[in-house]
Each structure stands twice: as C-alpha cells, then as structure tokens.
Amino acid sequence: MHVPATLVRGGTSKCWLFDQRDVPTTLDGLEALLVNAYGAADPVQLDGVGGATPTTSKAAVIRPCAEPGIDIEYLFGQVGIGVEKVEWGSNCGNCATAIALWAVTRGFATITGDLTAVTMRNVNTGAVLAASVDTTGGVAHEFGTQTVPGTRSGGVAVGLSFLDPVGGTTGSRTPSGAAAEELEIGGVQVRVTMIDAGAPMVLVDAAAVGRTGAEPVAVLREQVDWLRSVRRAAAARMGLDTLGDAVPKVGFVGEPVSYQSSTGEAVAAADYDISVRMLSMNAPHPAIGLTSAVGIAAANLLDGSVVHARSTASAAPVLRIGTPAGVVVVTCAGLGEYGPRRVTVRRAARILCDAEIHVPESAVPMPA
C-alpha cells in the first residue's frame, strides 16, 4: 500500500504528518502502519522513514474538527526506535508547530492577511493549542528566516500558545500535593518538583545531587538510567503508568552558569534564568520539548518548587530557559491561583517533502 505523508520540521523536531483519510481508522491498524513505515524494529530505522532519534521518530494524524473554535484535531505518536510500538500517551509542541504550518498550506485554516490563526486540539491529552502562522502578503510560505535554538536553519515563523495547560493529564498542577518533596532513589533523598502543565513531569534539583543542570548532552547521557529511576518513582507518586516512556518527563534544573551551546555559541549565565536538561524517550533531549518548557515556566511561578528556588526570574511571567541548544524564551499570561492560562513560545517550521510511503498491506490490519 502507498500512504501519502508530509515530512515537516517543527522547531527542533521532524514529524511525518498524515491526513486521517489516508490511514487506518483503528489504533491497532495505525500503529502497525507506523511501526512498518518507520522501520521501528531496527535501532537505526534503516528500512524505513524514521529518523532513529526521539526528536525525528514522530508522527501525527490530522483531521478537521467540527467543534466551533477549533480548526483541527491531531493524534500524536512517538514511534519506537528498536522496538515495535508507538507511544500514544503524550503531546509534542514542536510537532504542533509543524502541524500549524501544514494546516495552513492544506486549507484547514483560512489565511487572514499577514498572520493566520490555527486552533488545534491534541487528541492524546485533550490539550488545546493556538498557533499564529506567518502568512505575510496573504500567502502560505515555503521558506522563512525565523530561527530557533538547536538549528541555524530558518523557517516560517509560528507562535505557539498552550491554552489552560495546567492539570491536563492528572487534573492537578501538583499531582503529589506538594510544590516540592523528597523522593528516595537508591537510598538517597532527592529533592524534586512533580508538576502537570503541558505534560506531567518530574524536575530534579540538580545542585542537591551534585549536578549543575547545564551539563553537556554527553554527560547527561551517563545519567539516563538514574533519571529513569527517578521517573518511575515519580510516576507512581503522580498516579501515572510506570511502564511507558513518554510521561512523566524527567530532567535536571539548576541555577544559570556559562556554557557553550551544541551549535558552538557561548551562553553567559546572565543570558538566561534557569538551566534545564531533559530526557526524551530515555535519551537526552538536544534542546527542550515544548511541553517540558511549558511545565518549567509554570513551575517557575509556583512558590516552593525547585524551579522557583533556582531561577533568577522566579515568579516572572517571562522565563529564559538555558537548554543544550541555547536559550528558549517562554511567556506566561493570564496568571491565576492555579497557574497560567496561556503559555507561548516562538517557533519555526518548514515543509520538507510530500511523499508516498510504501508499506506491505499484509503488515497493516484493516477493519472488517
């Protein structure tokens, strides 16, 4: 079978996007399609279209939404690398950036002058996101000059806002009931904040365990197994599945220090407010997932959290996050007792190709 798909870069991720009309309607059939199309069983995904990294082995299936005020819905899948499965339990902000541009080019949203609004709902989590896509001159653009930390390549500017992001999965900003607490990991007490904003996550106070939160990716890679044990312990405390790899997300946070970004730029401690190093599907994230950025910005507003304690801009609506790729700026608005109502990040996207992916029909179960 030949399946139409579009490869789009959104921020620091690449995501294959599928029209709902072109793929199986059952989740089992869709998962089988993606596993085979990506070559998921192979750790290098050689016999497939997957990128063999957590930031490039992503997929989304998109359909129009009949609900007033929402243009499209999308189901996000994190396709396995070396394992024949797809994680369906999370959202991806970088892919949402890609989806917003794709929606404009495909006519799912009507172009309205120099900026076009696209409102999206993530089927996995119920999260609603509002995007503002650059359509200068009243046209959809193939190329642009907007850059983001993690790549020197430009793209079409997209502003992405997460609407009412707090408690989307667990129903609470602090699922364990505390702004910060101690988790026992291997007989050691580890101070963490468990927060649900953008996505459920557990943030480790880096200094409390002899880290800075600004370690190079190669050093963070040595901490993956330990961070996974933190993630499992936090999942149990948050009432989440301890077997999946997508959520809760996990990483270190620390005070700003000077470092060199992955693209070679010098980043001074004064250039940002909080150091962050996160995992994505059990591997160091080369920058930061946008759902993680939302959670960190929300935690920065939470008195007593490990982010609030280490940030040089604690309680401020604008937070500059130091990531391995550089500084990501996140803006919170509509601040209330339970956290921000809107969290916005500036991103960029570019459509890379339209393709037909060849998948054996026998590999994809179809509904009777």
Rank of each mutant, 00 (worst) to 15 (best):
V188Y: 12
Q223D: 02
V190A: 10
R237K: 04
V202S: 05
R211P: 15
V209A: 14
M194H: 02
A234M: 06
T212V: 10
V257D: 09
A246C: 15
R232K: 08
G254F: 04
R228W: 00
V230R: 05
W226N: 08
A199E: 08
P216Y: 07
L243A: 14
V217E: 15
V192D: 03
M201Q: 12
A199N: 13
D196G: 14
E222T: 03
L203F: 14
Q223V: 05
A207E: 13
G187P: 15
L203A: 13
V247N: 00
A235P: 05
A208E: 09
G213A: 14
A218V: 15
V204Q: 10
G244W: 00
V192K: 01
R191I: 06
V217Y: 12
Y259M: 05
M194G: 14
M238A: 03
R232T: 03
R232E: 00
D225Y: 13
A235L: 04
R191A: 05
V204L: 15
A235G: 05
A236R: 09
P248I: 09
G210K: 02
V204Y: 11
M201T: 07
V188P: 12
G187V: 13
K249S: 03
T242E: 00
M194L: 02
D205A: 07
Q260L: 07
V217D: 14
P216W: 09
L243D: 04
A236V: 08
W226D: 09
V219A: 09
A218T: 15
P216C: 14
G251N: 00
T212I: 11
I195H: 12
S229I: 11
G254L: 02
G198W: 10
V253K: 10
A197P: 14
P200F: 01
T193Q: 10
A246D: 02
R221M: 07
E255L: 05
V188G: 07
V209L: 12
T193H: 06
V188M: 13
G198C: 05
R191M: 06
A197D: 10
P216D: 11
A199F: 03
V188T: 12
Y259V: 09
V224R: 00
R221K: 08
M201C: 14
A246M: 08
I195V: 12
M194P: 07
R231N: 01
T193F: 07
P216M: 12
G198V: 11
I195T: 05
A235M: 04
P256N: 06
V217G: 15
E215A: 07
A235H: 08
D245P: 04
Q223A: 02
R211M: 11
A214Q: 11
L220A: 02
V190H: 05
R211I: 15
E255P: 05
I195D: 07
S229R: 03
Q223K: 04
A233E: 03
P248S: 13
V257I: 10
T212W: 14
